[in-house]
């Protein structure tokens, strides 16, 4: 069953298109990674799905309803980011209590256990928490609410690596216990990728890729070989990324489906896997050469 469906969704912010004719759909009870560079439209998309912002045109359906102004979607979805403005005079325990009052599926045991595990103090206020602690607390809200659709926007911002790892594990364990549809945007794809079933890659408000994580991992390969041979062989094919790998040696990243690996081996090229986060960076590269162009 489709839980999220977008068709030709465009969002204008001023004159700029934050989202540009975006179409995709997400199945029930999947974890999708929302990947893209800064300003690719991730936050805009998540806020529209959460009913906080309004699409300019196109059709957005979450749980078969238009999210903007829908109480049903509001009750069954939650949007978590690091700029969550909780009232300054409610302490953390009071905020949890409010969450419990509002969300029908709220899991108090989970909330309290996580609260204690991450050493929060009931009387603390949200404004006094450090950035990492604030993210941790917000994520506890997101986990405990157990909303059918959970939207995390950079949930691990500011957390140290140990906490991030623990949070990923909590996220997965709670998902196994109580499956739901999760979208999570993050700059730490390599840390997160094992959790993901699908990946949605945005660039400039457009969809670039939407495919299972496993396929993304095998999407591209890196070839290293003598420059002339490599370039000759790759003529007419899309080179996602290339850089010098020594005198007369070239490293090139190409789509796996474009080439034949045995042939590459026969031509004496070294084949190496390309990590999914690198693939995402190469695909959304602003033209060939990336940052090196600046220094030319």
């Amino acid at each position: 069953m489709e839980v999220i469906h977008c068709e030709n969704v465009t969002k204008l912010q001023g004159k700029a298109k934050a989202l540009d004719q975006l179409s995709f759909s997400i199945k029930e009870n999947t974890i999708t990674g929302l990947i893209g560079r800064n300003g690719a439209g991730k936050t805009t998309l998540l806020k529209i799905l959460g009913g906080l912002w309004r699409e300019t045109s196109g059709e957005v359906k979450v749980l078969s309803r238009r999210p903007f102004n829908s109480l049903y979607v509001s009750e069954n979805s939650i949007y978590i980011d690091d700029a969550f403005h909780f009232p300054s005079h409610l302490n953390l325990k009071e905020i949890l209590r409010e969450g419990e009052r509002f969300y029908p599926n709220w899991n108090r045991t989970l909330a309290e256990r996580l609260f204690d595990y991450f050493e929060f103090h009931p009387k603390q206020t949200h404004a006094n928490l450090s950035k990492g602690k604030r993210s941790t607390f917000n994520m506890i809200i997101g986990l405990a609410s157990r909303c059918k659709v959970t939207l995390y926007d950079e949930p691990t911002a500011g957390m140290d690596r140990a906490v991030r790892k623990e949070m990923y594990r909590v996220l997965l364990k709670d998902y196994l216990e109580y499956p739901r549809t999760i979208i999570i945007s993050s700059h730490y794809l390599e840390e997160l990728e094992d959790l993901l079933e699908d990946v949605l890659l945005l660039d400039n408000g457009k969809k670039v890729l939407h495919l299972p994580m496993d396929e993304l991992k095998e999407f591209a390969v890196g070839l290293t070989g003598r420059s002339e041979v490599l370039l000759q062989w790759l003529r007419g094919k899309t080179i996602l990324h290339q850089q010098n790998a020594g005198p007369n040696e070239l490293y090139a990243v190409v789509k796996k489906e474009d080439i034949s690996l045995p042939e590459a081996q026969r031509l004496g090229m070294t084949i190496s896997p390309v990590s999914s986060s690198d693939v995402c960076v190469y695909i959304t590269d602003r033209g060939q050469g990336g940052i090196d162009r600046v220094f030319r």
């Binding site: 009913g51 102004n69 829908s70 109480l71 509001s74 969550f84 403005h85 909780f86 509002f102 969300y103």
Partner: peptide
Amino acid sequence: KPFRDNEYLFVFNRLS
């Protein structure tokens, strides 16, 4: 805005 940000945290729509 500061009041609204506090208000639109949990379950809401504009009418409610």
